[in-house]
Amino acid sequence: MHALIQGIILGVLTAGVYALMASGQTLIFGIMKVVNLAQGAMVILGAYLSYQLFTSFGIDPLLAIPITTVAMFILGVAVQLLFLRPLKAEDRSELSLLVTFAVALLLEGIMSVTWKTSVRSINTGYANSSWTVFGYQITLVRLWAFLLSIAALLVLYLLLNRTRFGRAIRATVQNPESARLLGVESSRVSALGFGLGAATAAAAGSVYGLLYPFNSGSHYDLISRLLSIVLLGGLGSIGGAVVGALIVSTSSAVVASAISPSWSEMTFFVILLLVLLIRPQGLFGTTARGAI
């Protein structure tokens, strides 16, 4: 029982990080109908950037987030303008898979040249600290990661719901033609939306680097997890991404802890399969274009 509850605590705290990564993924899909296979690589790039800021300048990874998010926002916009915009609208969804995979490989190559392929981890002074609550351990890093992810998701929510830019994004998601008729420049919204997705990857990357060792190849595991989360939650739904992350992360932690680590990934895929059989659009997805 103790191991089970400890597993749930670990799973819920870790879910925040995945929710943050997946929200960027689902946002990009919502706006452009682009499945961004480079999201995992962008998270790892974010992790490397905060690793570098930490080792070279002693900047705490959590405090480095404003710097890395801005840098990655610019990178995201550049990727959209350079690689995705030239694609024709009618076959963008299909071709974007290839293009974003190419971007992922490009980023992986750049990272392995820059930081080599040995595994890095960000060891802050508080990396191994934890609080004991009723006999259970709350890992400080995971708690920070969780709170930070909630904060970042809140910022994202406010941005989407309380700003003109957010309205433009949501209008583009719901009906790109009408949005264009009303004066929303959808190509600019797409670029900025992709930048925003990359920025969430940067924030998540800082936290990811605190939690796990990583190298340039880590993005493969990550992207399969992220795709599963957004599929489970429903492509294009940020709320769905959060719920999907919670299910993925908690189920794998609980199964690993209470049953066997060999079954932990498997369990999640069984859940995913069942959900998709009953609701092919995912938990919160819509069959037509919908709201994010």
Partner: peptide, 20 residues
């Protein structure tokens, strides 16, 4: 006694079960 797959990223749940 558990064998974990090489792609296991998070060993915290396994070690939590051991600690218990």
């Amino acid at each position: 006694k558990q064998v974990y797959p090489s792609e296991t990223q998070d060993l915290s749940p396994v070690m939590a079960a051991i600690a218990a």
